[in-house]
Simulated scan of single mutants.
Amino acid sequence: MLRARRDLSALLAGDAAYLPLPDVDSNESTLLRTHLGVGAPVDDRCALVVSTSGTTGVPKGAMHTAATLAASAEATAVALGGPGAWLQTLPPHHIAGLQVMLRSIAAGADPVVVDVSAGFDPAVLPAAADALDGPRRYTSLVPVQLRKALAHPPAVNALRTFDAILVGGAATPPALQRDARDAGLAIVTTYGMSETAGGCVYDGVPLRGTTIRIDAPNDDGVGRVVLGGSTVALGYRNRPDHPAFAEPGWFRTDDLGVVRDGVLSIVGRADEAVSTGGLTVIPQVVEAVIAELPAVGDCAVVGLPDERLGERVVVAVVPAEGRAAPTLDEIREFVVDRLDRYAAPREVFVLDSLPLRGPGKVNRAALRELLS
């Protein structure tokens, strides 16, 4: 921990430029070293190059300064009620996990680290929580970790002692949010990405120094989410002309969202929409409905090639613990009643788990390949 503290402190001070790499995946490490230019000259302002969690192709590396990282840590402390000690349960080479470490160091506390190289085991939470010092205690989980923790009573008791539990990395189903809050957990849903130094919107409200803009909104106010402010990266190390950073100080996301009464709601991703029979289906909208079924533990909607429709909507379902998966007829009836017939899946696939990428996000490309 001594070496980690030294390196993290140097990163926050901007004394050197760092690229976090995974310890357990030599192929990923090699890929990142090769494409993100380890050892090659870097912008003098850059303190951190962190890879994005894309699904295919050459990884992109978001370049952050000491100032963007400090702004994120300070804004987070303000939003949560003050600085505190953090419990690390996420891979530290991704921005969410790295930020847990940096926020704790910035608060003057050593983070307590849970080894997740072999997966997340909620049974370790009680001892890990007891090891935390300081008047305020925080942690960050992805939805699949939160779901596992809620099924483990000792873990729930440990998490009740935290002043805030950030939940992000992927969309958190409303039913999971309700279950967590009903269990007495102080969860905070987050939205952000590597390009914004992690979460910069908490419970739909931008952190201090962050601005939200919706570009090209439709009649319902839904459009492309653009984020600006003090936590936005300089750009991509290996993609200097990428259009997402075409406007200095702003990052153009691939997400579709709407702001109502000052609160941002993410509808889905522009690049994941399913075109079926000339109509557009946003997978996340359908998933939010299907996730309300008690027998559904997790689900993901994708489009598969169809000669007649172009794409047909299908859903992969992970049954809730101890439950049988709902039938296709049950799912279709539930979706049609709440959305429309064209959004209802035409097939259901029952899986033990969903393929993931990065910190808990569904790997839709891998899922489509699996289902095809």
Rank of each mutant, 00 (worst) to 15 (best):
N238M: 06
T280F: 02
D255V: 10
R346T: 15
A164V: 14
T30H: 15
W250A: 00
A295F: 11
Y342C: 01
A40Y: 08
A123V: 08
P355N: 04
D110Y: 08
L227M: 11
P20I: 04
K361C: 04
L21P: 04
Y202V: 10
L356E: 04
G262F: 06
G84V: 14
V144A: 09
R160I: 10
V156S: 11
A233W: 09
L98M: 15
A158D: 09
E292M: 14
G184A: 02
D298A: 14
A131C: 03
L32V: 12
H64W: 11
P92K: 05
G84H: 15
D337Y: 07
D110V: 06
Q99K: 03
T210S: 11
K60Q: 06
G229L: 11
A127F: 04
L227K: 04
V225N: 00
E74M: 13
N218K: 01
E272R: 11
D203W: 05
V232W: 00
V313T: 08
M193H: 10
C46D: 00
I266S: 00
R137G: 04
I214K: 00
V144T: 08
L339Y: 09
G57R: 01
M1F: 09
L11D: 10
D254Q: 10
P283E: 05
I290Y: 01
Q177H: 01
R147L: 05
A79Q: 05
V167M: 03
C200V: 15
G228W: 13
R357Q: 06
T231H: 02
D215I: 06
T161N: 00
G257I: 07
R6G: 07
A4G: 09
I212A: 00
V100Q: 02
A325K: 03
G168K: 05
I95Q: 01
D163I: 02
R341I: 12
A16D: 13
V42S: 01
A85L: 06
D43Q: 07
P319D: 10
A344S: 13
S9L: 14
P305S: 12
P240H: 05
G257S: 12
E330L: 04
D179K: 02
V289L: 02
V112H: 08
V24L: 05
V258D: 03
R224K: 09
V281D: 04
L2I: 09
A16G: 15
A75R: 03
L309E: 13
V267P: 05
A246N: 08
A131D: 09
A47E: 10
V315C: 12
A85I: 14
A183S: 13
R357D: 01
L132C: 07
H242E: 13
P22R: 02
L80F: 15
A96L: 12
V38H: 09
T190P: 07
G14M: 12
V124T: 15
R341T: 15
V225P: 04
R6M: 06
E311T: 06
D340C: 14
P22H: 06
R269C: 04
N363G: 03
V232D: 00
T276W: 07
K60S: 03
G134K: 01
